[in-house]
Computed example of a mutant assay.
Amino acid sequence: MILLFTVIATAVLMLVCGFEMFLVLGVPAIMTKQFFYGSLPDPVIVQKVVGGINHSTLLAIPFFILAAELMGDGQIARRLTGLVQSLVGHRKGGIGYTVIGGSMAFGSVSGSAPATVAAMGRMVYPEMRAAGFRDRFSLGLIASSAETALLVPPSITLIIYGWMTGASVARLFVAGIAAGLVLGLVFAVLVAVEARRS
């Protein structure tokens, strides 16, 4: 019990002191190995660690992040937003609908919610404020509508979930698009209510 407390206290202390994360995770792991599994050969630990991350499915994560970075730095986000604005921007509260549709379109291509917030936020936030939307509502709409990137296929979250659980990724995508569209409609109702109020 004292040894376990020592391992946990070491991890917490290193975390509070600001050590790098690989040290915060690695040093307590080595201590655990020495305290509890001293007879286990060191190469077995390395094999277990490498075997745990040696999956081609995990390559989806850096490729989605790369796609999001390329889209954010290029003109793709602006063009997607312009397309959505040309379809729904003429309605009352149109910039709010543009945020929702643009976030869903950008998120479906990038698969990353933080990248969607970063790319969409700097473009549409000033326009939402100029259109008369409240500050808190504008920020909340941008952040929450970007979360549809977790649902609308292809989504990093659904791919990793399908890989870990053995579920069909295609079925997860079908369920995700239905949930994403429902969530988008709920956000649209909120925008309509806010547009009438302000």
Score class of each variant (00 low, 15 high):
Gly132Asp: 11
Glu147Pro: 00
Ile177Met: 12
Leu158Pro: 03
Gly162Leu: 06
Thr98Leu: 02
Asp135Arg: 15
Gly140Lys: 11
Gly166Ile: 09
Ile156Cys: 06
Gly96Tyr: 00
Arg136Ala: 15
Ala167Asn: 13
Met120Leu: 12
Gly162Arg: 09
Ala179Cys: 09
Val117Met: 11
Ala149Asn: 11
Val174Tyr: 07
Pro126His: 07
Ile159Tyr: 09
Ser108Phe: 05
Val88Arg: 04
Phe106Glu: 10
Ser144Ile: 12
Arg134His: 11
Met104Pro: 01
Leu172Lys: 06
Tyr97Lys: 02
Ala113Cys: 14
Pro126Gln: 06
Gln85Phe: 07
Val152Tyr: 12
Phe187Thr: 03
Ile95Ala: 01
Glu147His: 05
His90Leu: 02
Glu147Met: 14
Ser110Tyr: 03
Val182Gln: 02
Ala149Trp: 04
Thr165His: 05
Gly107Gln: 09
Arg171Asn: 12
Ala118Arg: 07
Gly107Ala: 12
Gly107His: 07
Val189Arg: 04
Ala131Arg: 08
Ile156Asp: 08
Phe106Ser: 08
Arg122Tyr: 04
Val174Cys: 03
Ala105Thr: 04
Ile177Thr: 14
Ser168Val: 03
Phe137Glu: 10
Ser112Trp: 02
Ile95Tyr: 03
Gly94Cys: 01
Arg122Ala: 10
Phe187Gly: 01
Gly111Asp: 10
Glu147Cys: 15
Met120Gln: 07
Met120His: 04
Tyr161His: 10
Arg134Trp: 03
Gly132Trp: 12
Phe173Gln: 05
Thr98Cys: 03
Ser145Pro: 08
Arg171Tyr: 08
Trp163Glu: 14
Leu151Asn: 06
Gln85His: 13
Phe133Lys: 10
Gly184Cys: 15
Val124Pro: 08
Arg129Asp: 06
Met123Val: 15
